[in-house]
């Protein structure tokens, strides 16, 4: 068994919070640059240029790319040959607390969804655990802004709705979100499992790099087709028209019940923050 001290986890999480919020990741940057070249709308092209300029300023000054530095979401994979010395949940939350304070990131979490008092340190984080083989811990982190989060949707389709039902639902969700989710978007789609599993899959899809594809051919084809169809909607950067409505569609699937076809769509804005660290 390999021993990992929780202090090490806190230290890494603190760093991740600051880096993810201040440095636009390379895959997102490249994709925006690619789309900018082909954007036909003058307003749209100008917006994409400003988005890239903003990323430069944020990185240079080490200030947040977007003021909504999100709710801290983690997927944590724990190897079966790892012995964690201490409480991992507390360690991650402590890292968030330190990162959001030291990085001058916005504290956007309220303690109770109805009473709405700010917790003032951006905790608690949302943490999903998984257990895998190996002697490492992999931490996937995404600070999730709520302009885009609010536009997400779940639908329990019938098996007979099939792949066309899935496509219609994804397109309808993006179309209804329009300018609100800060396009160009990254679209995370979860298909299968149960109600909550579909949502988790959609979230997990947003953690994938923009140059990645689903390993299954029919799903990879679906990702590709959905991206083309979404960009035919004409919504464009910031919803002000254009051919760049989404930068990427990532789809994740899971086995499901004979009676069901759950589909969830989780949208991400163009900042599309995601970061991975292996310990």
């Amino acid at each position: 068994m390999r021993k990992i001290r929780v202090e090490e986890i806190t230290k890494e999480v603190r760093k991740m919070c600051i880096k993810a919020n201040c440095d636009l990741s390379e895959d997102v940057l490249k994709q925006i640059e690619n789309f900018k070249e082909n954007e036909k709308s003058p307003i749209g092209k100008d917006i994409l240029e400003k988005i890239l300029l903003n990323a430069d300023i944020a990185s240079e000054k080490q200030v947040p790319i977007c003021q909504d530095t999100g709710m801290a979401v983690f997927f944590v994979e724990i190897g079966d040959k790892v012995n964690i010395e201490g409480n991992i949940k507390k360690a991650i939350n402590e890292g968030v607390r330190q990162g959001y304070k030291d990085g001058f990131l916005r504290k956007s979490v309220v303690k109770d969804p109805l009473i709405r008092d700010n917790t003032k340190d951006n905790t608690p984080a949302i943490i999903h655990y998984d257990f895998v083989e190996g002697d490492k811990i992999t931490i996937y982190f995404a600070p999730k802004g709520f302009g885009s989060e609010n536009m997400g949707k779940l639908k329990m389709l019938k098996p007979s709705d099939g792949i066309d039902g899935v496509k219609d639902f994804v397109l309808d969700t993006v179309n209804k979100a329009g300018p609100n989710a800060c396009p160009p978007l990254v679209v995370g789609v979860g298909i299968g499992g149960t109600m909550e599993k579909a949502c988790l899959l959609a979230k997990k899809a947003l953690f994938r790099d923009l140059n990645s594809y689903n390993e299954k051919k029919h799903i990879k084809d679906l990702e590709h087709e959905l991206l083309l169809k979404i960009n035919d909607l004409g919504i464009g950067p910031q919803g002000l028209g254009g051919r760049t409505t989404a930068l990427k569609v990532n789809v994740e699937t899971f086995p499901t019940h004979i009676a069901g076809l759950p589909v969830a769509v989780n949208l991400n804005c163009h900042v599309a923050r995601h970061l991975t660290v292996e310990i």
Binding site: I47, K50, I51, L53, N54, I57, A58, K61, V63, P64, I65, C66, Q67, R106, K107, S108, N118, K120, G147, C182, Q238, C269, H270, V271
Partner: peptide
């Protein structure tokens, strides 16, 4: 432009909280 927050801040020359200080951001 949503998400161009660092760029937009450059045009803000002064900032003063005038009400509801308890609401922080």
């Amino acid at each position: 432009i949503g998400g161009a927050a660092a760029l937009i801040s450059k045009s803000i020359k002064s900032s003063e909280v005038i009400a509801y200080d308890d609401l922080a951001t």
